[in-house]
Design a protein around this nucleic acid. Structure first.
Lengths: 178, 178
DNA sequence: CTGTGCATGTAAATCGTTACATGATTGC
DNA sequence: GCAATCATGTAACGATTTACATGCACAG
């Protein structure tokens, strides 16, 4: 699912400006996607051309005109068809964990620091999510939020229980080098 | 980390051809990255130009010449510098879970099927990983493998315990529509 | 007076995927 | 006979990111 399709999806919750759509990305989809204005605005223009959204312009004093987008019937049908397609495989990508695959090139200390900060960032992530998970209205959002927390909690526990495997390796190869 | 940098990383384990590098991606990095030949071959050519790898050509009978790449000292230094950079944030992306955010647009049945097949695909993933986790030699690889399994196990448990939240919503909105 | 929020966009660069292009060998 | 493995690449397309470009209002 690309930014264009997701903009359409966000508009199924109600009309919005490009600016508000960006906020919706942060609100509802931040765990999975992030989109910048430079993806959103061109996407909305294309969707308008394709007839999947309509746009009404609202004048404002001392601000650029607000362009409020609404999804059209065709847009809604198109989006539902997209949803019915077999979803792409889930992907979990961690540069930090990838770095550990090359631990043999780094000082033992660096490896340990890396794991420490990864755990710390997960803990921070859990805290942030917990806070706004409570504020979520829909069950879907709560579900997704809870999933994010669950996964990271499991990851932290795993790292704490198994980090010694990598750290022992790092120390050994360092001693060998000395 | 992009394909180019990762090719360099793979070459720190030993010389390899483009073909073998692709296998290494599947072997060592499949959880995080995948690269096709059309990313790898141009990357190797660029790395050669930049002096980060060297290449010796080996003739073969009835096959294209084999090009065996080795990382150079500059390449190794460059890669280590890349490793020391602050890693990008971890990302977990699931189209299936994203679809659930739009469950209000789908029949209740579709939502349930989606969760079922997500759980099934995670179970499959765990099985596949478990098999070749045992065959891994290095602790780093085992660590990463175990992480992949742990996360998916936690996710399955979470989904089983919380799916009723979404499924109840879906049924309600469906009844309302009837 | 500085940062955050509101509000819109374009241009260029980077990166990756899909499709195309070739061709022998080996195992089932 | 057909699929998989070995072996290399290019061209076109699609998607996203980064940098550029503007400007007022309001709170601390």
């Amino acid at each position: 699912m690309n930014v264009k399709t997701l903009c359409l999806g966000i508009l199924t919750f109600g009309d919005a400006t490009g600016y508000e759509i960006k906020k919706a990305f942060q609100d509802k989809l931040s765990q999975m996607y992030d989109a910048g204005y430079s993806s959103i605005y061109p996407a909305l223009n294309q969707l308008t051309k394709e007839g999947f959204v309509s746009c009404r312009q609202e004048a404002q004093n001392k601000r650029p005109d607000k362009k409020v987008y609404s999804i059209t019937t065709e847009g809604r049908l198109f989006f539902i068809e997209e949803l019915k397609k077999k979803p792409a495989e889930d992907k979990f990508r961690s540069e930090a964990l990838t770095t550990l695959m090359f631990a043999h090139l780094l000082p033992a200390r660096t490896t340990s620091d890396l794991i420490d900060s990864l755990i710390a960032s997960y803990e921070q992530y859990i805290q942030d999510l917990s806070t706004d998970c409570d504020m979520k209205q829909s069950h879907s959002e709560k579900f997704l939020c809870g999933m994010g927390i669950t996964i990271r909690k499991a990851a932290i526990t795993y790292m704490q229980e198994n980090r010694h495997l990598i750290e022992a390796d790092a120390l050994l190869s360092q001693q060998a080098a000395e």
